[in-house]
Design a protein around this nucleic acid. Structure first.
Lengths: 167, 167
DNA sequence: TCGGCTATGTTTAGACCTAAACCTACCGGA
DNA sequence: TCCGGTAGGTTTAGGTCTAAACATAGCCGA
């Protein structure tokens, strides 16, 4: 144990520790996956706190953003919403229910079929998303500013490729 | 709307959509942060399901792993645990309570001071973590296998640097 | 020795998510 | 026309997390 209990353990130290403690376990994934999870956790926490200051929660903003980005008439079915957000249909249903309760979206039956449910932004939903998105994106610019543009591009490419290989 | 509602929208498409819908909002962070969050979500979901098959949950395994990796005598204070896992003290407290209830760890007062709480692996905890870690790491090797070794190294370096710039 | 400050943990309230069960609408063949 | 199968959504049970309020223990200056 070092004297500073608070020092973050590096991915390399984690891999080395496993090789010392359980020789033979494959550790090569650790050096990628550990910093990936760690960065994602920091970003998720930061996003939650930033949005809390702005008066929304991340789940609701994701919903409103997806609708807003879709353009006129700002209407998508729950299935389309689920496809874009990588959460289960049940989670979408709950998100829509919360946002509807708060007057940010409205549920209407889709034109296409009677069982499909379409979700539309209300005026309040429009106002909220338009007030928040610019601030959020402006803030997030600062989060990646620690990397040079070339590094950001390289990182984005590698992540895209990993994403594709996973999905 | 395209005919295939299920197609995943690319980060580039998301950035383009914002520029079309709300011209002027800064979008350069999207190309990095969106695939990062997406990959992290896929990996988290995969880990949860894999561990579910192996009979543990991710939170408990993180706790047991941290203790096991620490080496003899497999004992850390809750503060040391919190420092390594990027989770709040309250979450650590709940994790330890659950693992203690399941007989995987034991709480003892630390030697150093009476208010510090030390957590130790029980025999059952040892058996569980040793049974699971090898399988989990072996499985996770396959998740990053879609990238060449050089790309994995480059990705790990970039993530390390981003992590450092965030923390 | 007293009072306050800091460090450590625990508890509680509230939010969110997944998995799985469930409910309807629709479709297509016999 | 029936009936099974499939697709689209919702509900429920259970689990985890954060933030914030609490509780204690130890420390330190006046």
């Amino acid at each position: 144990m070092t004297s500073d209990d608070r020092r973050m353990v590096s991915p390399r130290q984690i891999a080395d520790a496993w090789e010392r403690e359980l020789p033979g376990v494959p550790t090569s994934s650790i050096r990628v996956l550990t910093p990936l999870r760690r960065v994602a956790k920091r970003l998720t926490d930061d996003r939650r706190r930033t949005l809390d200051r702005l008066g929304v929660d991340p789940a609701t903003l994701d919903l409103l953003s997806t609708l807003r980005r879709a353009g006129e008439p700002w209407r998508l079915t729950t299935r389309e919403l689920a496809a874009q957000t990588l959460v289960t249909a049940g989670a979408i249903s709950q998100r829509v229910a919360r946002a509807e309760r708060d007057g940010l979206v409205a549920r209407t039956t889709s034109d296409a079929s009677r069982r499909a449910v379409a979700v539309t932004l209300t005026d309040a939903g429009h106002r909220l998303v338009e007030r928040v998105v610019g601030e959020l994106l402006t803030h997030e610019e600062t989060l990646v500013a620690g990397l040079e543009a070339a590094d950001r591009n390289a990182l984005a490419d590698l992540l895209d490729r990993l994403d594709e290989s996973l999905g």
